[in-house]
């Protein structure tokens, strides 16, 4: 062991070297954001809770009740009840998503042939009450305000 090594060992050189890195960051700008006060803005592809989109002109839902999203859903969290109107069209009676089962894979949005169900930027879904996790049709229509600005294909 050379003299330099002995001096290094005696003066705890490597600890000082490490502490210099620590000291550099003590005065620097913080990296985190303080969540409830400032919120992070998700990217346009972010998969938050679902929403049902309506036609902006007529106000009718895009959904045709084709049951594709219900079928592809890997966790089987979507329940659809549909009936037939007198003029032969399918109408959507109930559309329920059990959020406590949902895995946010985005398959429902991906297979939808009408751009009716979309994943939104809404990520604040915590609740004290389990009943809040059953998303009804009305909730999903209201959630459309959180939808991403442009509907992008995949």
């Amino acid at each position: 062991m050379g003299l330099i090594d002995i001096i290094k060992k005696a003066t705890f050189f490597e600890i000082l070297q490490g502490m210099s890195v620590t000291g550099k960051y003590a005065a620097s700008k913080k990296f985190t954001i303080e969540y409830p006060k400032e919120k992070s803005i998700p990217y346009p592809r972010f998969r938050g809770s679902q929403a049902l989109l309506a036609d902006p002109v007529t106000g009718e839902l895009n959904c045709d009740a084709c049951h594709l999203c219900e079928t592809i859903c890997p966790s089987q969290c979507i329940t659809i009840e549909s009936s037939e109107t007198p003029d032969g069209k399918k109408s959507l009676d109930e559309f329920t998503i059990d959020l406590s089962r949902c895995v946010f894979c985005g398959f429902c949005e991906e297979v939808c042939p009408r751009a009716a169900i979309v994943m939104t930027a809404n990520y604040e879904l915590a609740s004290y009450d389990k009943r809040d996790f059953i998303l009804t049709k009305e909730w999903l229509i209201a959630n459309a305000v959180h939808a991403h600005k442009e509907l992008k294909g995949r």
């Binding site: 990217y43 592809r45 972010f46 946010f104 894979c105 985005g106 398959f107 994943m119 995949r154």
Partner: peptide
């Protein structure tokens, strides 16, 4: 952040598909 931008999720991406990937790079 790059994952969120590319796939839409931060941990569970579900990004690969049979026959390719779900989306092109943004």
């Amino acid at each position: 952040d790059l994952w969120e931008m590319l796939t839409g999720a931060r941990l569970t991406h579900s990004f690969a598909r049979i026959g390719g990937v779900a989306k092109d790079i943004p």
